[in-house]
Structures are given as C-alpha cells and as structure tokens.
Write a protein that binds this DNA or RNA. Structure first.
Lengths: 136, 136
DNA sequence: GCCAATTCATACTAATTTAATATGTTATCC
DNA sequence: GGATAACATATTAAATTAGTATGAATTGGC
C-alpha cells in the first residue's frame, strides 16, 4: 500500500506540463531535464497517459506534449489508473484461482477489499492536478 | 497501491482468532489448516502482531494465540502497521537522499503524500476487526 | 532532400521487494 | 522424555518494478 514511483514520476511530469505547456508543447527531454527524471521511463509512462486521454502529443522536431484536459479535470485517480493500472488490487479478487485460501469456506473478504477499493478510488478522484500544482 | 498478501493473511488469521480463541488459545497450525495459509509465513506475521501487542501467546504443547485486545479495538490500520510497516510509503519522504528529483527545486510533493498518508491511516483505523468478522 | 529532434514501440536487464521455505531452539503439557 | 507449539534467523524463490537499449516513424527547418 504505497504510492508507486510510476505515480510519483507521472505526477511530477504532469505538473511540469500543467505549468509550462499552455502555449507550446514541451518535450520529454526538457521535462526530465527540469525535474531530474529518467527519460526512457517517463516516455513509457507518457505513452500510457496518452492512451488514457490525459495528454496529447505533437510528433517530430519542436514536438512534445500538452495536457489534453483541463487541469481541474485530471485527478490523481486518472493518473494512477493510467500508469499503474491495478493501483488498488487486493489479493482476493473473488476469482477462484486467486482465492485458494477460502476453499470450501464462504469468503467474506472480497466484499471488504472491494469496499476499500471503492473508498480509495473516490478519494484519489477528489484530488485534482490543479490542486497539486497550486501547492508547488 | 494495493493490499499486500501480508495484510490479507494477517486479517484472515486474526479473524480465525476472533472467532475461535475466546476460551482457549488456537495454534498457528490449526489456523493455517482451517484457512489454508502457509504456516511458516504466518508465524512470522504473528511474531510481529505480538510485538505490536495485538495478540498474546501461550508457549508449549496446547499453546497457541489469542487476541490481546477487544475485537472492536483492533483496526485494519493496526494490523497493517504491525505486519507491513510502511504500508503507506510515498516515494518522496522529504529526506534529501530520497528526493533526488527535486534538486534545487522547492518540492511541494511531500505535503501531498503526507496528506494522502494521513487520510489513509484515518480510514484504515476506522475499520475494526469486529466489523470484518461480522461479515464472514 | 536531409538532418536533427522528437514521439512511438518493444525487448531486455537490473534491482528491489515480497513470499515462502528451511533449520533449529526453547518452553510446556502429559 | 516425547510431542507440540512458540520463537528466531537465515536462506531461497518468485514476482514486481525500475530502468536501459535499440530502433522505427514523424516532422520542422535549413
């Protein structure tokens, strides 16, 4: 139960976008230079963020990335979901193959983990990028 | 960001204690037989749970474990904290050696992670063992 | 048209963490 | 004194995560 490096890097990089890409796109290279992040790793994260519609890209020289949505419309949940897909993944997901510990027993744990998951998603969804950036 | 196996196992095993150890202690062997958990692994978890004052033990034959506190006085947070110490551990903890990404920059991220951590702790602390057991 | 800058894509390696096992000691009941 | 069970530590195995390497496709500017 912790914030993954993926999430942390994504938040850092997206903050850079939020602050500096309003008029012209900013390249991963510049972002990583500014924020001291590993270029190739961030590239991977950005591909996922793009697939999830959080950012848009311009290819070729002078290209780079910009936010695809308003800063107040991108939540920490969106970021985590994009970059770290099962960011809330309890062990028992109710599927028999993952539930070897409850053989022959009624398993009341799935419900619990589901509830926790729902709570967390709601909470992370309430934290928006603009609030994050406002504090920097 | 997920519920670790450690936490899951601990909750399962403690549920067994909550249900079946009121009058006489129950051994790890029995718990693990009932709940299909790896004995030696659970032993390790129980040592930590004991160190943290959540359970008490009776050594020797006919020995075993019992809860050291009321079921409504043991929270999911207590369990996680005991068994999975940094169960909420964001990457940037404000210490310089973990904060290489903010060299020369004011780092506003620590605050954010701290706030998240506080929220989670409060939430997990609100979930007590009796509520968990009541659902099984 | 070509070169540099840049995104896009995949494969691979390294490091770290987590899960699980192995071995053995100590205490206690019968 | 033997069986049972907690206690303790070390080791191995598996899985995940972080990071690197390589290279193709796209585009702007000279």
């Amino acid at each position: 139960m912790n914030i993954s490096t993926k999430t942390e890097y994504a938040v850092r990089a997206l903050s850079e976008l939020a602050l500096n890409s309003a008029d012209k796109p900013i390249s991963i290279n510049d972002i990583c230079k500014n924020r001291n992040l590993p270029v190739k790793y961030v590239e991977q994260l950005f591909r996922k963020l793009k697939q999830n519609g959080l950012i848009k890209s311009i290819r070729g020289a002078k290209g780079g990335y910009q936010l695809a949505l308003k800063v107040n419309n991108i939540s920490l949940k969106d970021i985590m979901e994009a970059v770290d897909e099962n960011y809330v993944a309890p062990f028992c997901n109710g599927k028999p193959e993952n539930n070897v510990h409850c053989i022959g027993l009624p398993c009341g744990f799935k419900e619990l983990w589901d509830e926790i998951k729902k709570h967390m998603e709601k909470y992370f969804d309430s934290i928006k990028l603009d609030q994050i950036v406002a504090r920097l």
